[in-house]
């Protein structure tokens, strides 16, 4: 048994190559409760939380690269993605203390991955690497389970939006599971949106280009696209997801679009 806490990404990749079955841990806010409950009993743990080079947030043009252990709260404070992008999501994600520890990248390995809907709308990619290979490869943020056994997620690549909106349906504003969520972003490459499957929490990206999102008069068309992507199971669920989508559309075009975790039941 070993508890490994490497100090650099390079040493983490080397450790991963040696122990491909080790449980990988970022902030620990999801895996530690699972270990507490006896759901996970790893022989080895590879803890990335101590990576000195893993918490950087680097802006490059209209993209931002985040290290693998950038904490959710730190990303929100940095505003590297543009003011307001993460504000709304943070109010709907866990508790203040957990947000200080949880990592954006680590969340994508959980089920459900609450942040996947936002990162999908921001044209996000998961950056993976292995000690044996020279380069990096990029995966959609919803395919974290496609990593090879010797690979680690070493960061995220996201677009900086000109406007962004996030709407979430839950039984209460904080510390409650998301029933459905919609995120929408106007990006340099075109408008993008993402929506969770109703109650499943699994991010289902809408078509990459969403013309109605860019059209100030296209709220109903955008809502129809979002509902089609989410496939809500009941009329109530369809109406709820459509309402979230229209609210996102309105925020995008109001000029002060900010993520907002309004909760309506």
């Amino acid at each position: 048994m070993a508890y490994l806490r490497p100090a650099t990404i390079a040493s983490a990749l080397a450790a991963r190559a040696e122990l491909p079955r080790a449980l990988v841990c970022g902030g620990g806010t999801a895996v530690q409760p699972a270990m507490n409950a006896g759901l996970l009993r790893p022989a080895d743990v590879l803890d990335l939380g101590g990576l000195r080079d893993g918490a950087a947030i680097d802006a490059c043009g209209d993209r931002v690269r985040l290290g693998p252990v950038v904490r959710v709260a730190a990303a929100a404070r940095a505003h590297a993605l543009g003011a307001g992008v993460l504000d709304g999501l943070l109010r709907g994600f866990a508790t203040p203390a957990v947000r200080e520890r949880a990592t954006l990248t680590g969340n994508l390995f959980q089920a459900p991955a609450d942040l996947a809907v936002v990162l999908t709308a921001l044209d996000g990619s998961l950056i993976a690497a292995a000690a044996r290979s020279r380069g990096e490869r990029r995966l959609p943020v919803t395919t974290a389970d496609a990593l090879e056994p010797d690979e680690l997620a070493i960061g995220l690549d996201l677009a900086v939006p000109a406007a962004f909106a996030y709407e979430r349906l839950a039984v209460r504003e904080v510390a409650a599971p998301t029933l459905a969520a919609v995120a929408a972003a106007l990006l340099a490459g075109g408008p993008r949106a993402a929506v969770t499957g109703y109650r499943t929490g699994t991010a289902v990206p809408c078509p990459g280009a969403v013309p109605h999102l860019a059209d100030p008069a296209g709220a109903d068309g955008f809502a129809a696209e979002v509902v089609a992507a989410a496939a809500p199971p009941t009329p109530y669920a369809r109406r709820s997801v459509a309402a979230l989508a229209r609210r996102c559309h309105r925020r995008i075009h109001r000029g002060d679009a900010r993520g907002d975790a309004d909760v309506r039941r």
Binding site: R5, A97, E100
Partner: peptide, 15 residues
């Protein structure tokens, strides 16, 4: 220096 629930921190991470 950061308020943290001790139950979500792996013991090894607190070394």
């Amino acid at each position: 220096g950061v308020p943290t629930p001790a139950c979500v921190v792996p013991a090894g991470a607190a070394a």
